[in-house]
């Protein structure tokens, strides 16, 4: 298992995403003819390639998250007589989740923008759609502005959920009070000079 995971993350992080997309769409059907049938759409091929690629990066993020939990936490769990599984469920994973949220947020944003590569296997993704628009009426600014707005909108939604998650995995008793607290502490809010 360890060897497989190493080879997997090595391969998918070391080769360009573009190559992986082209490989899944162009080379897979030659290797296995089942992929030549109509159900194998460019969209499905892009989904498979980007998922395989993203999984490699996610695996690294999760691994580093788990590793960065203080080993003393596991020791304390074992001293109480908790099983390995319980320690993982109740102690290690919740703490690793907190560590992993920001880099995972980054990954999702990167993934969103990588979808523009899928144009090479004729998926009409967001950027291609905007190109199709200006190729008929030559209004470049509008097309690009619209595409940018869509990207901004989707990323904003991702960021919103990320910050919700981060709040949920902040381990302080004040995490619910924080929202109502004044942005500037009262003592500092007026300048005495």
């Amino acid at each position: 298992m360890r060897g497989f995971v190493f080879l997997y993350t090595w391969f998918f992080r070391a080769t360009p995403t573009l190559l992986q997309l082209l490989f899944v769409w162009d080379a897979l059907p030659q290797i296995w003819h089942g992929f030549t049938e109509s159900w194998f759409t460019p969209f499905l091929a892009a989904s498979i390639a980007l998922s395989l690629n993203e999984a490699a990066y996610m695996a690294e993020i999760i691994r580093s998250g788990l590793l960065s939990v203080d080993p003393g936490q596991e020791l304390a769990g074992r001293a109480l007589g908790m099983s390995r599984r319980r320690i993982l469920q109740r102690v290690i994973i919740p703490q690793a989740v907190r560590i992993v949220i920001p880099p995972m947020g980054n990954e999702f944003i990167t993934l969103l923008k990588l979808t523009s590569l899928a144009t090479v296997i004729s998926v009409t993704e967001l950027l291609t759609a905007s190109q199709n628009f200006y190729s008929t009426n030559f209004s470049y600014e509008e097309a690009f502005a619209a595409a940018a707005l869509y990207y901004l909108f989707i990323v904003s939604i991702l960021m919103f959920f990320q910050s919700r998650l981060e709040k949920r995995y902040t381990f302080t008793s004040a995490r619910r009070r924080v929202r109502n607290a004044p942005a500037v502490p009262v003592a500092l809010s007026h300048d005495a000079r």
Partner: peptide, 17 residues
């Protein structure tokens, strides 16, 4: 048995979550 010998650590090791 589990928990029959209690242990207290130098660095406390309270579950931080």
């Amino acid at each position: 048995g589990p928990g029959e010998v209690g242990m207290v650590f130098q660095r406390f090791n309270l579950f931080s979550n």
